[in-house]
């Protein structure tokens, strides 16, 4: 059993302080323009922080409560599109209502919550595997809808002219807005991690882990199992929706290509490699898998005779291989606890 070391400071407090500081940084005339050679890393870091938000919710759902949500991208997409449709100004062949971005942010979270309530109420009373099937199907249906309802969503071209609040508030140009985005998202992420970690480390989290272990026993020991499952599912939906809204405000656009099953695959693999149920471990796992993808991208440059498309497929094989190795030799994940996950390692 190995664990990442405990930080000396509380993540929730640090996240709050950093968040306030990052907002002050946005309003200040100060900006930091990173060298252009680092952009590829910084862009990946933004994506990492957004996926980390989804994963923080997913880990509460699956890692702690045992809810198999195979469609986290659905909430990410619904949050993103709700935010984009409400705030876009004159998008090309799509609906844009032109509201201010805070409206879109709130709407993105609420839309994802609404989907969470709907799915939760309809499936969480059924056997465990129904949730897995339903979430996977719903994610694919939503992806299909975003492509076919092109008069609303812009189809595969997407929805442009979405406000970019962080970029607008940052002077300096170049990579300055990229840096500011990382500062803001980083603090949001730290705060979310802190809050969800407090949940999982408390008596609340104990009830969740009991539900994962044995629902019926938990119920006969006086806990309202269904309500916990529903609420946890909704928390995960909300933070996924938030991540989606933040993505479109970072990109200034929403497009079906941002919200593919790849998102689900990456956060799930990150969680399994890091160790489901370990709040810090899953984020480490996500960093590993995204770092691995970056590394293989550089590797691609060394092999000019392999096209990028071909290499994307090879990368998927390599990711699969990595997952197989972890499942075979360390089923609890790198930072997970075998006894808590009931696996033999």
């Amino acid at each position: 059993m190995s664990r990442l070391e405990l930080p000396a400071i509380d993540a929730t407090r640090a996240g709050l302080v950093l968040f306030v500081a990052s907002i002050a940084f946005l309003y200040s005339p100060i900006f930091i323009r990173p060298p252009s050679g680092t952009f590829v890393f910084l862009e990946l870091a933004v994506l990492f922080l957004l996926y980390a938000l989804i994963l923080i919710g997913l880990n509460l759902q699956f890692g702690h409560t045992g809810l198999v949500n195979f469609g986290p991208v659905a909430f990410f997409a619904v949050g993103g599109y709700a935010a984009a449709i409400l705030t876009a100004n004159d998008p090309y062949r799509a609906v844009g209502l032109g509201f201010a971005w805070p409206v879109g942010l709130v709407a993105g979270v609420l839309a994802a919550v609404a989907l969470g309530v709907l799915l939760g109420f309809s499936t969480l009373k059924l056997r465990d595997d129904f949730l897995a099937i339903v979430t996977l199907a719903v994610a694919e249906i939503i992806h299909g809808l975003t492509i076919t309802f092109r008069d609303i969503t812009g189809g595969s071209i997407g929805l442009q002219n979405v406000p970019r609040p962080i970029a607008d508030m940052t002077g300096g140009g170049g990579g300055a807005e990229l840096f500011a985005t990382i500062v803001v998202l980083g603090s949001v992420c730290l705060l979310a991690y802190g809050v969800f970690h407090r949940l999982s480390a408390s008596p609340y989290g104990r009830v969740l882990r009991a539900i994962r272990a044995d629902e019926q026993v938990t119920e006969t020991l006086g806990k309202r199992v269904f309500r916990y499952k529903l609420v946890v599912f909704i928390y995960g939906a909300a933070i996924g929706g938030l991540a989606g809204a933040l993505l479109v405000f970072y990109n200034g656009a929403a497009s079906a290509s941002f919200f593919t099953i790849d998102v689900t695959v990456i956060v799930w693999i990150g969680m399994l490699i890091g160790g489901a149920g370990s709040d810090r471990g899953v984020l480490g796992g996500l960093a590993l898998i995204m770092g691995f993808q970056l590394l293989t991208r550089f590797f691609n440059d060394l092999l000019p005779f392999v096209t990028q498309d071909q290499f994307a497929s090879i990368r998927l094989v390599l990711v699969g291989l990595l997952l197989m190795l972890v499942v075979k030799y360390r089923p609890e994940g790198i930072w997970g606890t075998a006894e808590e996950l009931e696996v033999e390692s």
């Binding site: 408390s202 104990r206 009830v207």
Partner: peptide, 24 residues
């Protein structure tokens, strides 16, 4: 998958810490 202590603590009736706000 839980410790012996956590098993026994789980049923604790009327525990405020089992509500999200108190936990956070």
């Amino acid at each position: 998958t839980m410790t012996v202590e956590a098993n026994v603590l789980l049923p604790t009736p009327a525990h405020p810490g089992e509500r999200a706000w108190h936990a956070i």
